[in-house]
């Protein structure tokens, strides 16, 4: 049987890639994809623990998180389209009307 630490390390790596992606990427869509990766890393932790502890809660929570992530994607992509219409770019460095 694969030990739980293996799943957790994989999840931590995914989470790290996501975090770095958000911090260094300049493209809003890539940033958003990195955030989704982080959410899925959290899902992985939930499933791994749920399986290791044999409590079904974790599986249910994952479905809930997937739903929330879908809602978030709807709002997020809407906002990205809005700013693309205004600016004709989605490079985050160009959104400097307000200082970061």
């Amino acid at each position: 049987m694969v030990p739980i630490s293996a799943y957790l390390i994989l999840a931590a790596v995914l989470f790290g890639i996501g975090t770095v992606g958000v911090l260094i990427s300049r493209n809003v869509i890539v940033m958003f994809m990195s955030i989704e990766l982080m959410l899925n890393a959290a899902n992985m932790v939930l499933i791994a623990f749920s399986r290791a502890l044999s409590i079904a809660d974790g599986h249910v929570i994952v479905f809930l998180v997937l739903t929330v992530a879908a809602a978030e994607a709807a709002v997020g992509l809407g906002l990205i389209i809005m700013i693309y219409r205004n600016r004709a770019t989605i490079n985050i460095d160009r959104f400097s009307l307000l200082k970061w």
Binding site: V22, M38, L79, I83, R87
Partner: peptide, 14 residues
């Protein structure tokens, strides 16, 4: 306003 929206969204989702 659209810039505020996108910044709030990215930071909030993060």
């Amino acid at each position: 306003s659209s810039e505020a929206g996108i910044k709030y969204f990215l930071m909030g989702a993060f």
